[in-house]
Protein backbone atom coordinates (compact mmCIF):
# COMPACT_ATOMS: atom_id res chain seq x y z
CA UNK A 1 0.00 0.00 0.00
CA UNK A 2 1.38 3.34 -0.98
CA UNK A 3 1.72 6.10 1.56
CA UNK A 4 1.48 9.83 1.25
CA UNK A 5 5.19 10.10 0.52
CA UNK A 6 4.96 7.69 -2.41
CA UNK A 7 2.14 9.78 -3.83
CA UNK A 8 4.17 12.96 -3.44
CA UNK A 9 7.15 11.37 -5.16
CA UNK A 10 5.06 10.05 -8.02
CA UNK A 11 3.34 13.38 -8.56
CA UNK A 12 6.61 15.26 -8.20
CA UNK A 13 5.30 17.44 -5.38
CA UNK A 14 5.91 17.77 -1.66
CA UNK A 15 4.10 15.81 1.02
CA UNK A 16 2.60 19.11 2.14
CA UNK A 17 1.07 19.63 -1.29
CA UNK A 18 -0.47 16.17 -1.29
CA UNK A 19 -1.83 16.93 2.12
CA UNK A 20 -3.29 20.20 0.86
CA UNK A 21 -4.97 18.40 -2.00
CA UNK A 22 -6.41 15.89 0.42
CA UNK A 23 -7.69 18.72 2.53
CA UNK A 24 -9.11 20.42 -0.54
CA UNK A 25 -7.17 23.53 0.30
CA UNK A 26 -7.71 26.39 -2.11
CA UNK A 27 -4.06 27.25 -2.60
CA UNK A 28 -3.29 24.35 -4.94
CA UNK A 29 -3.38 24.82 -8.69
CA UNK A 30 -5.86 22.59 -10.50
CA UNK A 31 -3.02 21.15 -12.55
CA UNK A 32 -1.10 20.11 -9.45
CA UNK A 33 -4.23 18.75 -7.86
CA UNK A 34 -4.90 16.64 -10.94
CA UNK A 35 -1.37 15.28 -10.91
CA UNK A 36 -1.72 14.33 -7.24
CA UNK A 37 -5.09 12.68 -7.79
CA UNK A 38 -3.71 10.74 -10.78
CA UNK A 39 -0.76 9.55 -8.71
CA UNK A 40 -3.12 8.44 -5.95
CA UNK A 41 -5.18 6.46 -8.39
CA UNK A 42 -2.17 4.83 -9.96
CA UNK A 43 -0.71 3.83 -6.61
CA UNK A 44 -4.10 2.73 -5.25
CA UNK A 45 -3.56 5.14 -2.45
CA UNK A 46 -6.33 5.04 0.07
CA UNK A 47 -6.00 7.97 2.38
CA UNK A 48 -5.69 6.12 5.63
CA UNK A 49 -8.79 7.15 7.50
CA UNK A 50 -8.25 10.40 5.79
CA UNK A 51 -11.43 10.52 3.82
CA UNK A 52 -13.17 10.13 7.11
CA UNK A 53 -10.95 12.84 8.45
CA UNK A 54 -12.10 15.23 5.80
CA UNK A 55 -15.70 14.56 6.58
CA UNK A 56 -14.98 14.99 10.26
CA UNK A 57 -13.13 18.19 9.58
CA UNK A 58 -9.68 17.26 10.75
CA UNK A 59 -6.94 19.79 11.31
CA UNK A 60 -4.20 17.20 10.72
CA UNK A 61 -2.33 18.42 13.74
CA UNK A 62 -1.54 16.70 16.99
CA UNK A 63 0.03 18.30 20.01
CA UNK A 64 2.76 17.13 22.31
CA UNK A 65 3.04 18.66 25.77
CA UNK A 66 6.45 18.32 27.39
CA UNK A 67 7.69 19.58 30.76
CA UNK A 68 10.93 21.21 29.67
CA UNK A 69 12.03 22.07 26.18
CA UNK A 70 15.57 22.88 27.30
CA UNK A 71 16.21 19.39 28.65
CA UNK A 72 17.56 17.43 25.66
CA UNK A 73 15.53 14.45 26.83
CA UNK A 74 12.26 15.82 25.56
CA UNK A 75 13.29 16.65 22.00
CA UNK A 76 14.16 12.93 21.72
CA UNK A 77 10.60 12.20 22.58
CA UNK A 78 9.31 14.82 20.16
CA UNK A 79 11.36 13.12 17.48
CA UNK A 80 9.59 9.83 18.20
CA UNK A 81 6.19 11.48 17.90
CA UNK A 82 7.24 13.35 14.80
CA UNK A 83 8.68 10.22 13.14
CA UNK A 84 5.20 8.75 13.13
CA UNK A 85 3.20 11.94 12.56
CA UNK A 86 5.23 12.81 9.50
CA UNK A 87 4.54 9.44 7.92
CA UNK A 88 0.87 10.03 8.59
CA UNK A 89 0.98 13.49 7.05
CA UNK A 90 0.37 15.31 10.33
CA UNK A 91 1.98 18.29 12.00
CA UNK A 92 3.05 18.27 15.61
CA UNK A 93 2.51 21.28 17.86
CA UNK A 94 5.04 21.34 20.65
CA UNK A 95 4.01 22.89 23.97
CA UNK A 96 6.46 23.50 26.78
CA UNK A 97 4.67 23.31 30.14
CA UNK A 98 7.68 23.98 32.37
CA UNK A 99 6.25 21.87 35.15
CA UNK A 100 3.61 24.53 35.66
CA UNK A 101 0.11 23.22 35.94
CA UNK A 102 -1.44 26.59 35.07
CA UNK A 103 0.61 26.77 31.91
CA UNK A 104 -0.37 23.23 31.06
CA UNK A 105 -4.05 24.09 31.47
CA UNK A 106 -3.64 27.18 29.30
CA UNK A 107 -2.13 25.11 26.55
CA UNK A 108 -4.87 22.57 26.79
CA UNK A 109 -7.51 25.24 26.35
CA UNK A 110 -5.70 26.67 23.36
CA UNK A 111 -5.26 23.28 21.78
CA UNK A 112 -8.89 22.40 22.22
CA UNK A 113 -9.85 25.71 20.63
CA UNK A 114 -7.54 24.98 17.74
CA UNK A 115 -9.25 21.63 17.41
CA UNK A 116 -6.11 19.51 17.30
CA UNK A 117 -6.86 15.92 16.36
CA UNK A 118 -5.07 14.39 19.30
CA UNK A 119 -2.84 15.03 22.29
CA UNK A 120 0.19 13.39 23.83
CA UNK A 121 1.00 14.52 27.34
CA UNK A 122 4.37 13.77 28.88
CA UNK A 123 4.65 13.75 32.67
CA UNK A 124 1.45 15.71 32.93
CA UNK A 125 0.56 17.39 36.19
CA UNK A 126 -3.14 17.30 35.37
CA UNK A 127 -5.46 15.30 37.56
CA UNK A 128 -7.53 12.43 36.25
CA UNK A 129 -10.59 14.68 36.34
CA UNK A 130 -8.82 17.33 34.28
CA UNK A 131 -7.89 14.70 31.76
CA UNK A 132 -11.32 13.19 31.53
CA UNK A 133 -12.67 16.61 30.62
CA UNK A 134 -10.66 16.45 27.39
CA UNK A 135 -12.87 13.54 26.40
CA UNK A 136 -15.86 15.87 26.29
CA UNK A 137 -14.30 17.54 23.29
CA UNK A 138 -13.87 14.20 21.58
CA UNK A 139 -10.13 14.65 21.35
CA UNK A 140 -8.18 11.43 21.88
CA UNK A 141 -5.14 11.62 24.11
CA UNK A 142 -2.29 9.39 25.20
CA UNK A 143 -0.35 9.84 28.42
CA UNK A 144 3.34 9.13 28.72
CA UNK A 145 5.65 9.00 31.68
CA UNK A 146 4.40 7.31 34.79
CA UNK A 147 1.75 4.67 35.30
CA UNK A 148 -1.74 5.67 36.42
CA UNK A 149 -3.76 2.77 37.58
CA UNK A 150 -7.00 4.56 38.17
CA UNK A 151 -7.43 6.17 34.79
CA UNK A 152 -9.01 4.58 31.75
CA UNK A 153 -6.66 5.99 29.17
CA UNK A 154 -3.87 4.91 26.89
CA UNK A 155 -0.62 5.17 28.79
CA UNK A 156 2.92 4.49 27.66
CA UNK A 157 4.93 4.41 30.84
CA UNK A 158 8.17 3.37 32.37
CA UNK A 159 8.97 2.23 35.88
CA UNK A 160 10.86 5.10 37.51
CA UNK A 161 11.17 3.36 40.86
CA UNK A 162 12.66 0.26 39.31
CA UNK A 163 15.03 2.26 37.09
CA UNK A 164 16.31 4.15 40.13
CA UNK A 165 16.59 0.95 42.06
CA UNK A 166 18.82 -0.44 39.28
CA UNK A 167 21.15 2.57 39.47
CA UNK A 168 21.47 2.51 43.25
CA UNK A 169 21.82 -1.25 43.29
CA UNK A 170 24.71 -0.88 40.87
CA UNK A 171 26.39 1.67 43.16
CA UNK A 172 25.99 -0.72 46.06
CA UNK A 173 27.42 -3.55 44.01
CA UNK A 174 30.49 -1.52 43.16
CA UNK A 175 30.94 -1.14 46.91
CA UNK A 176 29.64 2.29 47.95
CA UNK A 177 27.68 2.58 51.17
CA UNK A 178 27.17 6.30 51.71
CA UNK A 179 24.99 7.04 48.73
CA UNK A 180 23.20 10.36 48.33
CA UNK A 181 20.26 11.28 46.15
CA UNK A 182 19.55 14.56 44.41
CA UNK A 183 15.85 14.28 43.76
CA UNK A 184 13.83 15.76 40.94
CA UNK A 185 11.47 18.65 41.42
CA UNK A 186 8.96 17.79 44.10
CA UNK A 187 5.95 18.64 41.97
CA UNK A 188 6.69 15.78 39.54
CA UNK A 189 5.23 12.40 40.44
CA UNK A 190 8.18 10.77 38.75
CA UNK A 191 10.49 12.33 41.34
CA UNK A 192 8.62 10.57 44.13
CA UNK A 193 8.91 7.27 42.35
CA UNK A 194 12.63 7.69 41.77
CA UNK A 195 13.08 8.51 45.45
CA UNK A 196 11.22 5.38 46.44
CA UNK A 197 13.45 3.26 44.20
CA UNK A 198 16.50 4.85 45.82
CA UNK A 199 15.21 4.04 49.30
CA UNK A 200 14.23 0.52 48.39
CA UNK A 201 17.73 -0.32 47.16
CA UNK A 202 19.30 1.04 50.35
CA UNK A 203 16.87 -0.76 52.63
CA UNK A 204 17.42 -3.99 50.78
CA UNK A 205 21.12 -3.61 51.50
CA UNK A 206 20.23 -2.97 55.15
CA UNK A 207 21.48 0.58 55.03
CA UNK A 208 19.60 3.39 56.72
CA UNK A 209 18.19 6.13 54.58
CA UNK A 210 19.59 9.33 56.03
CA UNK A 211 17.75 12.57 55.45
CA UNK A 212 20.98 14.56 55.12
CA UNK A 213 21.86 12.52 52.04
CA UNK A 214 18.68 13.42 50.21
CA UNK A 215 18.59 16.90 48.69
CA UNK A 216 15.99 18.31 46.39
CA UNK A 217 17.11 19.43 42.96
CA UNK A 218 15.18 21.16 40.21
CA UNK A 219 15.85 18.81 37.28
CA UNK A 220 18.35 21.36 35.92
CA UNK A 221 22.15 21.40 35.79
CA UNK A 222 22.23 24.14 38.45
CA UNK A 223 20.21 22.09 40.89
CA UNK A 224 22.64 19.21 40.48
CA UNK A 225 25.58 21.52 41.04
CA UNK A 226 24.18 23.18 44.14
CA UNK A 227 22.87 19.94 45.60
CA UNK A 228 26.30 18.38 45.20
CA UNK A 229 28.02 21.35 46.81
CA UNK A 230 25.75 20.93 49.78
CA UNK A 231 26.52 17.21 49.98
CA UNK A 232 30.26 17.74 49.65
CA UNK A 233 30.21 20.10 52.61
CA UNK A 234 28.77 17.51 54.94
CA UNK A 235 31.22 16.37 57.57
CA UNK A 236 30.89 12.88 56.16
CA UNK A 237 30.54 13.41 52.45
CA UNK A 238 28.83 10.77 50.34
CA UNK A 239 30.87 8.26 48.34
CA UNK A 240 28.35 8.24 45.53
CA UNK A 241 25.55 10.45 44.27
CA UNK A 242 22.50 9.29 42.33
CA UNK A 243 20.90 12.24 40.58
CA UNK A 244 17.29 11.93 39.43
CA UNK A 245 18.16 13.07 35.92
CA UNK A 246 21.22 13.39 33.71
CA UNK A 247 21.25 17.18 33.67
CA UNK A 248 21.60 17.21 37.46
CA UNK A 249 24.21 14.45 37.24
CA UNK A 250 26.22 16.60 34.84
CA UNK A 251 25.90 19.48 37.33
CA UNK A 252 27.07 17.09 40.04
CA UNK A 253 30.17 16.09 38.07
CA UNK A 254 30.94 19.75 37.54
CA UNK A 255 30.64 20.45 41.26
CA UNK A 256 32.85 17.52 42.23
CA UNK A 257 35.50 18.78 39.82
CA UNK A 258 35.12 22.35 41.09
CA UNK A 259 35.98 21.08 44.56
CA UNK A 260 39.22 19.64 43.20
CA UNK A 261 37.88 16.12 43.54
CA UNK A 262 37.59 13.41 40.92
CA UNK A 263 34.75 11.32 39.55
CA UNK A 264 34.58 8.42 40.31
CA UNK A 265 37.63 7.93 42.53
CA UNK A 266 36.52 10.53 45.10
CA UNK A 267 32.80 10.63 44.41
CA UNK A 268 30.87 8.41 42.00
CA UNK A 269 27.93 9.89 40.10
CA UNK A 270 24.99 8.20 38.40
CA UNK A 271 22.12 9.79 36.52
CA UNK A 272 18.77 8.95 34.99
CA UNK A 273 17.54 9.44 31.38
CA UNK A 274 20.50 8.52 29.18
CA UNK A 275 20.39 11.72 27.16
CA UNK A 276 22.92 11.62 24.32
CA UNK A 277 25.25 13.98 26.15
CA UNK A 278 25.67 11.48 28.97
CA UNK A 279 27.86 9.30 26.75
CA UNK A 280 30.03 12.32 25.93
CA UNK A 281 30.72 13.98 29.29
CA UNK A 282 33.94 13.17 31.10
CA UNK A 283 33.80 10.67 32.66
CA UNK A 284 31.03 9.05 30.64
CA UNK A 285 27.95 8.93 32.78
CA UNK A 286 26.46 5.73 34.13
CA UNK A 287 22.74 6.23 33.94
CA UNK A 288 19.35 4.64 33.45
CA UNK A 289 17.87 4.76 30.00
CA UNK A 290 14.55 6.49 29.93
CA UNK A 291 13.15 5.27 26.64
CA UNK A 292 11.44 8.51 25.65
CA UNK A 293 12.08 8.20 21.94
CA UNK A 294 10.34 4.86 21.92
CA UNK A 295 7.68 6.34 24.19
CA UNK A 296 7.04 9.02 21.59
CA UNK A 297 6.82 6.47 18.79
CA UNK A 298 4.41 4.20 20.62
CA UNK A 299 2.30 7.04 21.99
CA UNK A 300 1.92 8.46 18.50
CA UNK A 301 1.01 5.02 17.15
CA UNK A 302 -1.66 4.60 19.80
CA UNK A 303 -2.94 8.09 19.15
CA UNK A 304 -3.24 7.47 15.42
CA UNK A 305 -5.12 4.26 16.13
CA UNK A 306 -7.79 6.54 17.57
CA UNK A 307 -7.51 9.25 14.96
CA UNK A 308 -7.65 6.76 12.09
CA UNK A 309 -10.44 4.88 13.81
CA UNK A 310 -8.37 1.72 14.06
CA UNK A 311 -8.32 1.43 17.82
CA UNK A 312 -11.18 -1.06 17.70
CA UNK A 313 -13.02 -2.18 20.76
CA UNK A 314 -9.79 -2.99 22.52
CA UNK A 315 -9.67 -1.67 26.00
CA UNK A 316 -7.24 1.15 26.63
CA UNK A 317 -3.60 0.23 26.30
CA UNK A 318 -1.11 0.44 29.10
CA UNK A 319 2.29 -0.24 27.64
CA UNK A 320 5.33 -0.54 29.88
CA UNK A 321 8.74 0.34 28.51
CA UNK A 322 11.73 -1.12 30.21
CA UNK A 323 14.18 1.17 32.00
CA UNK A 324 17.70 -0.12 31.58
CA UNK A 325 20.93 0.51 33.44
CA UNK A 326 23.61 1.90 31.13
CA UNK A 327 26.93 1.17 32.75
CA UNK A 328 29.66 3.62 31.78
CA UNK A 329 32.57 5.19 33.64
CA UNK A 330 31.26 7.54 36.30
CA UNK A 331 30.73 4.92 39.00
CA UNK A 332 34.12 3.25 39.07
CA UNK A 333 33.18 -0.34 38.40
CA UNK A 334 35.60 -2.69 36.71
CA UNK A 335 33.10 -4.75 34.80
CA UNK A 336 33.88 -4.08 31.16
CA UNK A 337 31.56 -6.87 30.05
CA UNK A 338 28.64 -5.05 31.62
CA UNK A 339 29.41 -2.05 29.44
CA UNK A 340 29.74 -4.09 26.27
CA UNK A 341 26.50 -5.91 26.86
CA UNK A 342 24.59 -2.81 28.03
Amino acid sequence: MANIRDVAKKAGVSVATVSRVLNRASNVSPKTADAVLAAMQELHFTPNGLARGLALNRTRTIALLIPNIVNPLYPEMAKGVEDVAHQKGYNVLLCNTEEDIAKERDYLTMLIERRVDGLILMSTLLTNDNLLQIREYNIPFVLTGRYRQDLEADIVYTDYAYGSYLAVHHLLEVGYQRIAHISGSAIQWESQEKLSGFKKALREAQLTVEAKYIVEGDNEIEGGYLGTMRLLHLSEKPQAIFAANDLMAIGAIDAVKAQGLRVPSDVAVAGFDDIRMSALVEPKLTTVSHPVHKMGLIAARLLFDHIDGGAGEDATQKILLQPKLMVRKSCGHENRLREIFN
Binding site: M1, A2, N3, V84, Q87, K318, L320, L321
Partner: peptide, 28 residues
Amino acid sequence: EAWEHEIRYAKSHGAVIIANILAHTPSE
Protein backbone atom coordinates in the same frame (compact mmCIF):
# COMPACT_ATOMS: atom_id res chain seq x y z
CA GLU B 1 4.66 2.15 9.50
CA ALA B 2 6.89 1.12 6.60
CA TRP B 3 6.43 -2.56 7.44
CA GLU B 4 2.72 -2.20 6.89
CA HIS B 5 3.51 -1.50 3.27
CA GLU B 6 6.24 -4.15 2.97
CA ILE B 7 4.06 -6.89 4.41
CA ARG B 8 1.06 -5.99 2.29
CA TYR B 9 3.25 -5.91 -0.79
CA ALA B 10 4.73 -9.36 -0.17
CA LYS B 11 1.32 -10.74 0.68
CA SER B 12 -0.09 -9.44 -2.56
CA HIS B 13 2.51 -11.64 -4.23
CA GLY B 14 1.34 -14.71 -2.41
CA ALA B 15 3.86 -14.83 0.42
CA VAL B 16 3.07 -16.65 3.64
CA ILE B 17 4.60 -14.26 6.11
CA ILE B 18 5.82 -14.91 9.61
CA ALA B 19 6.60 -11.57 11.22
CA ASN B 20 9.60 -11.78 13.51
CA ILE B 21 9.19 -9.19 16.27
CA LEU B 22 11.08 -8.02 19.35
CA ALA B 23 10.20 -5.78 22.29
CA HIS B 24 11.34 -5.42 25.87
CA THR B 25 8.23 -5.87 27.96
CA PRO B 26 5.22 -8.15 27.51
CA SER B 27 2.89 -5.21 26.87
CA GLU B 28 5.20 -3.72 24.26
